[in-house]
């Protein structure tokens, strides 16, 4: 067991972990931040995406100890300070970018990383970027639309509600 400490959603946290404890486990079981989901356990579905020092990371692929001292952001920390939804969250709600919602936290976190890198992505860029995020429910259409809308682009041309 070893001690780790990191900043999660702006708060300093610390805990005891084994060398093999994954960041996802630490967040979910150690900190009760269960919005980070486990969909595949093998780094393929993207349900567990969080931000580590501003980069999108699949937290089932990173050891908690690797995040020692890092600045970690999870879905629970995405809303605005006053509790209102941020622009990406709002767009997922308004454009029906979710059904069962299990992929949603990872999608929102990936989308945030994309828009930071590329504030006005094309539809094709959104789709390529989300290659590592699986959604089994929506067929992706409304997810892409939500992200386009969140980037301030007109989505009326993207057919179908």
């Amino acid at each position: 067991m070893a001690q780790v400490s990191m900043t999660v959603n702006g708060k300093t946290v610390s805990g005891e972990v084994e060398g093999r404890t994954l960041l996802a486990e630490f967040l979910r079981e150690g900190l009760n931040l269960t919005g980070t989901h486990i969909g595949c356990d093998t780094s393929q579905c993207g349900a567990c995406v969080v931000h580590v020092n501003g980069e999108a990371v699949k937290s089932c692929t990173m050891f908690a100890m690797e995040a020692d001292g890092a600045d970690v952001g999870t879905i629970e920390g995405q809303a605005n300070a006053d509790g209102s939804l941020n622009v990406i969250q709002q767009a997922f709600q308004d454009h029906h970018g979710l059904q069962c919602g299990f992929c949603t936290p990872g999608m929102v976190m990936s989308a945030a990383a994309l828009l930071k890198e590329n504030p006005k992505p094309s539809e094709a860029e959104v789709r390529t970027y989300l290659e590592g995020n699986i959604c089994r429910c929506t067929g992706y259409h409304n997810i892409v639309k939500a992200i386009m809308a969140a980037s301030g682009q007109d989505v009326s041309a993207i057919a179908a509600e």
Partner: peptide, 24 residues
């Protein structure tokens, strides 16, 4: 009416609870 999913807000904020998320 084309209302959003009832739990949309919970999903986008990570608060929606699945079985694996229930505190043990």
């Amino acid at each position: 009416k084309p209302l959003p999913h009832d739990a949309a807000r919970l999903h986008v904020t990570g608060q929606a609870r699945y079985v694996d998320d229930i505190p043990l």
